[in-house]
Design a protein around this nucleic acid. Structure first.
Lengths: 216, 216
DNA sequence: AGGTCACATGACTAATAGGTCACATGAGGT
DNA sequence: ACCTCATGTGACCTATTAGTCATGTGACCT
């Protein structure tokens, strides 16, 4: 947690520091990032930095919490009532909101990915472990509800499928922010999400109960 | 490329250096890794190190090439004749060999993952870009052949599916080396691979031509 | 014996890092 | 006018880094 002095700062200064930090952590992972560069870009003295944060990690965690908050903003409409939609529509919406976040906040996504990708790092455990657990639990609940409603076929290994859905969720954003040139939200992207979902749908849907799945 | 002096070294010394490097790069990503620690653990003088390698990056690339070679060893039986099997059997074998490699060489996998996970790093581009391209091309060819043989349904976005298959390939190893406690090759794992493949199979198989898919 | 050459060595350099600290500043209260 | 106290500041400290280089060593050749 940053110190009170940080939150007492005039907003523009606080924001300048956060911007500089986002810039730095977007370009370098935690160990390679430099407090010197951050204070330089933020236009503050190094001593001031340590009036606001106990150490580099303190700032990093603050930025991560900004990211998590922002991401939840994108998803919150869905999280209000996750069981109101059928599982495939819900997945679609989740992936779409994830992609919106990714496209709207590429720098934040980059920081998140840098951390996400090094599970052996102490910070990973410290920051993400519990969140990831929650995400898995969330998908698991969704799947269990879907199973009860007969939307997906019997006998699926739900934790395994939940893992797959989490992976695919990340992959969707990755597909667009890393693999292609398109960085702007477009109809084409929504169609691609449909394609991902279609495969999952066919893969796990309950196709036996006469309930034919529409794959337009 | 390491210098000749390195390859002229007595084997045990060469191996000692490689082991120390693998240990180091497994624990720290490139920027955080330390030549000082490597030479200390290998029991050689720092000056000697620079007789063998032009710089840290030189050693790193050497280790990466060891990893790639090792991984190809696991896959080579499959790569000999990739079109001899139907696409789902081939995928199954590919994933299984990937998992074998992962379980048999956890340190190497870790190094690979650390690099794989930071596409913004200069080394990523330098080392992996072309390999990844090749992997995508490989999956794409497989899918095209499968499409011609009518094994998968028409109208699929093959590059997108190829991307999904690459992602899933990595995920399979990840699922076991990071998500579960099981680190030893077992029948259970092979069954889980089946589960992943089953979902893909239903997701992309051609179910219309009366060719029923066996999902035992 | 003398010379050559590949390899070994660790003290050294220059740069950078994260973090500290003695001191400066300035607004608010009395 | 004086004091207090939160905040600002940058020189400084210690640790560590990648990489260099002058010197040492010993096997082999003539």
């Amino acid at each position: 947690m940053p110190k009170d002095t940080f939150f007492n700062l005039p907003e523009d200064k606080r924001v300048r520091i956060e911007q500089a930090a986002i810039e730095e952590f977007g370009n370098y992972h935690f160990d390679a990032s430099s407090v010197n560069r951050i204070v330089e870009n933020a236009g503050i003295a190094k001593g001031s930095f340590y009036q606001y944060f106990s150490d580099k990690k303190d700032l990093y965690k603050h930025i991560m919490s900004l990211i998590i908050t922002k991401k939840l903003e994108y998803m919150s409409p869905l999280l209000q009532n996750p069981f109101g939609l059928d599982v495939f529509t819900l997945l679609h919406e989740l992936y779409a909101s994830g992609l919106s976040f990714a496209l709207g906040n590429p720098a934040l996504l980059e920081i998140g990915n840098k951390l996400l990708s090094d599970p052996s790092h102490e910070l990973y455990v410290e920051i993400l472990a519990e969140n990831k657990e929650k995400s898995d639990q969330f998908f698991l609940h969704i799947l269990q509800a879907a199973e009860n409603r007969g939307e997906i076929r019997q006998g699926l290994d739900l934790p395994l499928v939940a893992y797959l859905l989490t992976t695919l969720n990340i992959a969707v954003s990755d597909y667009y922010t890393r693999r292609t040139e398109k960085r702007v939200y477009s109809r084409e992207m929504m169609e691609d999400i449909e394609k991902f979902i279609d495969i999952v749908r066919l893969g796990i849907a309950n196709n036996e109960g006469g309930k034919t799945v529409d794959q337009s």
